[in-house]
Design a protein around this nucleic acid. Sequence first.
RNA 1: GCCGAUGUGGUGAAACUGGCAAACACGCACGACUCAAAAUCGUGUGCCGCAAGGCUUGUGGGUUCAAGUCCCACCAUCGGCACCA
Length: 805
Amino acid sequence: MYDYKNIEKKWQKYWEDNKTYKVEIDKNKKKFYSLVEFPYPSGAGVHVGHVKGQTAVDIFSRFKRMNGYNVLNAMGWDAFGLPAENFAIKNKKHPGDFTKKNIENFRRQIKSFGPSFDWDREIDTTDPKYYKWTQWIFLKLFEMGLAYEKDAPINWCPSCKTGLANEEVLDGKCERCESVVEQKNMKQWFLKITDYAEKLLADLDDLDWPEYIKTSQKNWIGKSEGAEIDFEIDGFSEKIKVFTTRIDTIFGCSYVVLAPENKLVLKLKAKIKNWQEVQNYINEIKNKTDLERTDLNKNKSGVCLEGVWAINPFNKERVSIFLADYVLASYGTGAVMAVPAHDERDFEFAKKYNLDIKRVIAKENSSNDNNEECYVDDGFLINSEKFSGLTSFQAREKMIIEGQKNNFVEKKINYKLRDWLFSRQRYWGEPIPIVKCSKCGNVPVPEEELPLVLPEIENYEPSGTGESPLAKIDSWVNVKCPKCGQLAKRETNTMPQWAGSSWYFLRYIDPHNEKKMASEESLKYFMPVDIYFGGAEHTTVHLLYSRFWNKALYDQGIVPVSEPYKRRVQHGLILAEDGRKMSKRWGNVINPDDVIESYGADVMRVYIMFMGPYGDTSAWSTSAINGINRFVNKIWSLLEKEVCDELADKETLNILHKTIKKVGEDIENISFHTAISQLMILLNYLSSLEKINKEVFNVYLKLLAPFTPHLSEEMYQRLNSDVNQSIFDFSWPEYDLDLIKDEKVKIAIQINGKLRDSLEVNFDSEEDFILSLAKERELVQKWLENKEIVKIIFVKNRLINIVVK
RNA sequence: GCCGAUGUGGUGAAACUGGCAAACACGCACGACUCAAAAUCGUGUGCCGCAAGGCUUGUGGGUUCAAGUCCCACCAUCGGCACCA
């Protein structure tokens, strides 16, 4: 039996002592940067999902390394975050202590399954040496005008008396106390990711990422091209600017809608006859939670501003103005033109309030269109004066040109993407390095004063005013303005958890540099990340934020590439044996420690990779892991065989070289489960042999090595007593295409496309020869009796199909 | 509602460019070893049929000598977004 307990420990110690996986810049070698998302070190310890990603990155890295690349592969901790803070509040302890303990546990667990990380490059986002540079990047963004402050509503829990991050709000309720979350206006920091919307969108095209991630990001950015149209207001100098992508429908506009928050309404107050009603409506909406507003999908509400009218600039028609909650203040201009006949929402609203429904787009190119339904697609214009008869596409172009000429239309692109809310009213995060001076405004903390260290504090409980707990430390808050020297106050909000993870891949490259975020030389050598493994939950947020930071730094000439991640691979979830998500609540969590205890790290690694396609969700199976245990022990038992130096026979070489080819290609394509099945096929073959050629044996161990590093090292040492190097110092075996060619092939004989018989012939045998052999077969003759051969289809080395009548 | 993904044995799944569907495993059955069990090893295992043979990749159609693979329509499941004008 394979003694995994001792052998795995032995090799882990060997790797650590010999710094086997240490990597330095080596310009004689091609670099390869593989990355896996670094974990948040929770109290629960490493999850099998972490094992999946980390094993994958390890297999890939070891494979690349054996192929001669200088591989950078490191691990770290995304350690700021709420669980640590909540723990601190509850236990009156510093969140850092809790975090430190968790990190130690994570490190121990990860090391116990033997990944090839260069541990000298380990990073921790809560370490001031690390977050010094998170703050430094923030200041760069501030300098670039990409970090700014503005009043914005935040999620406010009235019972916990604190602001909440979006991630802490579940179904409109506070995650901790379940009270309904309110919106509260506060001055907040934002990062202007919208400035990069176009680049973030356009550059997706060149990335080797799964199409579904690209689509998701595209949808998230949500580009839409259209126009802004000015509607004059009868009797006022103010105009209503609306945004639309369907200017072609403008002759069907029967009213204009403002978001209830739109300030314009105050200016119209004097002429609004039903002001009381309007005001009530505004208040009603203000008191609605986000939950209620978005949940009211089916029941749109609104109020008409009686006594005022907007004027459609195309036909000078007077239309009513409404306030309605189905228009979002935060998108476009906060106002829309309503075309009930050609927009579902307007249609619904118009029916409810009995408003005009004018049809201006017809499906077919004919003037009559009696359709009573709402028609939202493009078509041909009708009832649109001189534009009638045009297609929607043509009309949009012409109308925009005409509108531009007359100064009431502007071309406009809008994005769904919003600026990134960057401040949190929390303790356990990077302090935002800004001093607020009544004279100078927001002043950056001078670079030489970084890191601005998170101060020690007595009580982590939020203050209740919506401010961060840092606001309570007068000695920290009160400082002199770095610019004018007068008394000023520090910004007391901290950064969100996303900050540290938005650039950690840059720090791995040069983690101990005290003068720079990373040296130019090292960035130039190692960037970009060649392959990035991770989970599907980061499809939009983390991947988008970190692309944005990288692009901003690229524009400053700090990083050498505009896109950080060349290739992205995401893994599917591992469910519990019962098919549900693993959760403490169900008591169905698989702890990697237990798996390693009963089977060893190599079995766990291979099992997790063999569960199914890497990107698919699959359920844990105790009996299936037993099968892998058998596999690993069967490999071990090869050592009992006689090893010889006699030349291996053709059959052996054939299957061996097929395996070299397939395993290499499968790893490259992230098809680990089929690579493993090929390794099983070769094992079954080797096990059936009387004796094994030593070279063949060695090649097999190398092919196994990325998957079962401990086992392969041990067996390699035992087999080659003269070698005292790691198997990973040797190169990946090469295959010979000539040896892969089969000498004999099985040819299927089909009659009318149905399999009737088969033949074994020499490779590359010709059609005539095979046909004559086939005709002699009894099984074939039976089907050819009294039939006329119409056609012969021959595919070399595969099949012959005889078509008869 | 929109977008995306996926549908193949009892289960996880495989199948290169259209070319012998079910590789490799799990499970199950039988056998060997054992007083017995576990472990291990061996044999078998898509479905119907005694057999010849027939049927089979979510459903229905189509293209083709040949379709899991291509085209059209539909159904189901999962995931994401969700009043973005």
